[in-house]
Nucleic acid binder design. Structure first.
Ligand code: FES
Ligand code: FES
Lengths: 146, 146
DNA sequence: TTAATTTAAGACAAAACAGTCTGATATAAA
DNA sequence: TTTATATCAGACTGTTTTGTCTTAAATTAA
């Protein structure tokens, strides 16, 4: 069970961060990405295609083909990716599931949740995937960029 | 789409908080709870039964039957309910979906997420459902306890 | 030109989640 | 005792999410 992002979004964030570590101009295939990040291959394909249509990636077919970021890694934030995949419903939804979340009729944890939500929001907008790539200490990322 | 709790858990939290506002000894029927909180009736029935089996509620059949808290409202925290329904996976899972979450091989947002998670954890353990009931400013709760 | 490789696209399947329905059982009151 | 009302239990259905498969189209290189 995922926490706040869908599986699809988690995979997207992992993948884009991986691409952020590659050399300028280098293309990564679905096969490599799926193998190193242990993501179901065809599921990943759909996710990358979606990110391509959204304009975050460029793709190339044929041998030597693959995916790469369409813009500098520092111009893409977590927020952009989350928005593209999951949407931003979390930003104004009640954590207890009530239909409305507003200060007018707050639920019992509205204020505390508001702080958490703001911190989360800050985390998403303040970090670009270039920083993400550098900060990632997972072993599967070590090989990238070689 | 729910944020961090499942629909079932959201409904459970809403319901238990509602029960926390009722007078000592008063029993609330599934029908009333479902109507005022706008929760599907049979789905709610299963949730309340589950909470009963877990020991948080007592139930009574027949006319004048219904549900009530099995213990003082101040002895039940959000944490108890979340644990009973969703489990505590959120407390040690990676927000980016990696298999392991640990300081040994942290993902790029491990530290920031750690703070958010701690705040969330604090919110769950520090608030009991008696306080919750009092703090709830939703119109559907106004009728309770009359 | 042909063969190999890679993405594109969408149908399909499996699993998880949410919600529904029915019959049984217990209880209170007429 | 009978009737009405409520929970109990579990099977069932529908929806969303997640994952799989197949074919087509594009591209590279032999
Ligand atoms: S009303 Fe519940 S979080 Fe705002
Ligand atoms: S490793 Fe990702 S949150 Fe800890």
């Amino acid at each position: 069970m995922s926490i706040i992002f869908s599986r699809e979004c988690e995979y997207a964030l992992q993948s884009v961060t991986y691409l952020a570590r590659t050399k300028q101009g280098e293309k990564i295939s679905i096969r490599e990405l799926a193998r190193t990040l242990k993501i179901p291959r065809h599921f990943l394909a759909k996710i990358l295609q979606r990110l391509t249509r959204k304009g975050f990636l460029i793709s190339a077919k044929g041998p030597t083909g693959g995916f790469a970021l369409s813009m500098p890694a520092k111009d893409i934030t977590l927020f952009h990716i989350v928005d593209a995949i999951d949407g931003l419903a979390f930003a104004n939804s009640c954590v207890l599931g009530f239909r409305e979340c507003s200060g007018k009729h707050p639920c019992a944890v509205h204020d505390q949740w508001g702080e958490i939500r703001d911190t989360l929001y800050e985390m998403l907008v303040s970090r670009n995937v270039s920083q993400m790539g550098a900060a990632m200490k997972k072993p599967e990322y070590e090989a990238a960029g070689n």
